[in-house]
Nucleic acid binder design. Structure first.
Length: 589
DNA sequence: GCCCGGGTCTTGT
DNA sequence: CACTAGACCCGGGCT
């Protein structure tokens, strides 16, 4: 390997002559928000050489330095293809904020490529370099230094140059293995979402603040009520814990300094003690590890005999909304905007994931979604796919009853309720449970019937949807035999050899779900980038902002784009979408 | 005292 | 019973 440290204009001009058309680019920067953090260096590399450009030269104002950076920007922006280890799009965003725009270049992001190759693997450069090249330089570097900028220049440059060279080598390797078409879809989706990551979403700060204040008062009103209702029990807990803590101390002085603890209604452990030890309530619901549960289902079930538990439940609910969606939102506001991150390589199925904040799990009731508002002279519009997973499943299985749902405009819940002679709400729960592979035992729990009856309903359910059942059996066989499965969009999911039959069953459930959910995700993802003006998407919904005057034409175009995805997959039963808006904030319809 | 991972719960599709 | 992000508590390990 050869490292070129380019600190003068003459060195850069020399580099220009040598740097090839296809390169890897790596950036070093101060840890922090990519939109505001400081760039430290840019490294350009091929498989054997790296050229290191320290950014501080840009801060020194002289003619040559302007030329120095103009030259580097021109080199980067004129490359034919660029390999990038771009976790969370940090490099693209930082380069953009420093005047270098690679958003529309032919970029090969190793994170995205490697995720398509092996969705279970760790995609970090650390792990991959250790595995493929057996070079421990990263471990050694981070063992010695906390931050990149702490290292002496010679070590820092060598470290960064190696990163860039390995990025190039791994990029070439990934490019040979990645499913090309699928990668282009992922790249286009990421490019489209990058606009929202850079521009952010406008929020109604006043509404967030008002919501915070009103929930604050609500929570403050709950606490004295809870203290009163459970005075006897919390008193015991506090004294017991106090005594325990005192007995741990060795010196008299230490014992005197122990403060009396306060019962914490936010602690699941303490709530469990209160409900099951102090109040001696029966454990109607268990957690996955077999402990008595403190979730709302358990508390509400017990509240018939202990009405105070309902207050506790309401407190917990309000507190959760307050913490996650109000406080959590406020801490993320910058200049009346929120900048979510979208991860196109975050799930095994191909679904998009969102974070900081997660736009995908905002409560559909209440005021939280209304925090998000359009920019001036714009309006929020959007569209949902109707029964997206049913359409996918009908196309994959040709199941007569699923086809009936689509052609007769019925709902799956009605068909199930009718076919099994059960309540519609129960049918709804049953449909979701069985779609995700629930067994007869689970059916019994949901319907509250005997094991025998449950088995009968389970059998009749799969007679009703015999087409689905047939595909499930085919998938089960394939997973057991090959340990992997590829969906209609060309995405593959891999499973490790199962340790027992229960792990095998779980893999079979995951595999079937992948087949349906994965294709549903690809539909929505493709529609999102083809529409081109979306703000973000949430699994089967696309949210956009458009000029108020264009709202109706944009709604029509959005629906057309979404429904046209049928052609990508040659669907016999077409996708259907329903639009909403124009609105002055995001709302659920 | 701070960090990390596991457990539990809640939210959405 | 599939796929998420994120809140809090709690215990153990490290500085």
């Amino acid at each position: 390997m050869k490292f070129h440290i380019c600190q003068t204009l003459a060195q850069v001009e020399e580099a220009v002559k040598q740097i090839p058309e296809v390169v890897a680019i790596d950036t070093e920067f101060v840890k922090g928000n990519p939109r505001t953090t400081r760039l430290l260096a840019i490294i350009i590399a091929d498989s054997e050489q790296a050229w290191y450009f320290p950014w501080y030269i840009a801060d020194e104002t002289c003619i040559d330095n302007h030329k120095y950076w103009d030259t580097i920007r021109d080199i980067i922006e004129s490359r034919k293809a660029i390999f990038l280890q771009d976790y969370n799009h940090c490099d693209t965003i930082i380069l953009y904020k420093h005047g270098i725009d690679i958003r529309d270049k032919q970029v090969y992001n190793l994170i995205d490529m490697h995720h398509l190759i092996d969705e279970n693997a760790n995609h970090s450069l650390d792990t991959r370099v250790k595995e493929v090249f057996n070079d421990p330089y990263k471990e050694i570097f981070w063992g010695k230094y906390q931050n990149y900028e702490d290292a002496p220049e010679s070590e820092a440059t060598e470290y960064a140059c190696k990163d860039a060279i390995y990025t190039y080598r791994l990029g070439v390797k990934d490019l040979q293995q990645v499913p090309t078409d699928l990668y282009q879809h992922v790249k286009s989706l990421g490019r489209s979402l990058l606009e929202t990551e850079l521009n952010g979403l406008k929020v109604n700060l006043r509404l967030i603040q008002e919501t915070k204040d009103s929930l604050d008062t609500e929570i403050q009103a709950y606490l004295p009520k809870l203290k009163e209702e459970f005075y006897e029990q919390t008193e015991i807990w506090e004294l017991q814990e106090w005594a325990k803590e005192i007995s741990k101390r060795k010196s008299n002085d230490g014992r005197l300094r122990v403060q009396r603890p306060v019962f914490n209604f936010d602690s699941d452990k303490q709530i469990a003690w209160l409900v099951y030890e102090a109040l001696k309530c029966p454990a109607l619901v268990k957690t996955k590890t077999g402990n008595p549960s403190t979730n709302s289902e358990a508390l509400l079930a017990l509240s018939e005999s202990r009405p105070a538990l309902k207050t506790l439940c309401q407190y917990k609910e309000t507190k959760a909304i307050y913490n996650t969606f109000v406080e959590g939102m406020l801490t993320r506001v910058e200049n009346n905007r929120i900048y979510p991150h979208f991860n196109v390589s975050g799930t095994a199925t191909g679904r998009l994931s969102h974070s900081d904040p997660n736009m995908g799990n905002l409560p559909k009731t209440g005021v939280i979604r209304n925090f998000f508002i359009p920019d001036v002279e714009m309006a929020i519009i959007g569209a949902d796919y109707s029964q997206l997973e049913v359409v996918i499943e009908a196309n994959l299985t040709n199941d007569p009853n699923l086809i009936r749902i689509l052609t007769e405009g019925a709902s799956k819940h009605d068909i199930t309720a009718e076919g099994l002679g059960i309540d519609r709400n129960q049918a709804k729960t049953l449909n979701f449970a069985l779609q995700y592979g629930a067994g007869a035992g689970k059916v019994g729990k949901i319907l509250g019937v005997s094991k025998h009856e449950a088995e009968d309903i389970f059998r009749r359910y799969w007679e009703l949807y015999s087409g689905i059942n047939a595909l499930k059996e085919k998938v089960n066989e394939e997973i057991e035999r090959t340990g992997q499965i590829t969906n209609l969009a060309g995405r593959t999911r891999h499973f490790p050899r199962p340790r027992d039959k229960y792990e095998m069953y779980r893999q079979q459930r995951q595999a079937y779900n992948f087949l349906i959910q994965g294709v549903a995700a690809e539909c929505c993802n493709r529609a999102f980038y083809r529409y081109g003006k979306g703000l973000f998407s949430v699994h089967d919904e696309i949210v956009a902002q458009v000029p108020i005057a264009d709202a109706e034409t944009e709604k029509a175009r959005l629906i057309q784009v979404m429904e046209n995805i049928s052609k990508d997959f040659n669907f016999k039963y077409s996708l259907k979408a329903v639009a909403y808006g124009p609105f002055d904030c995001w709302k659920k319809t």
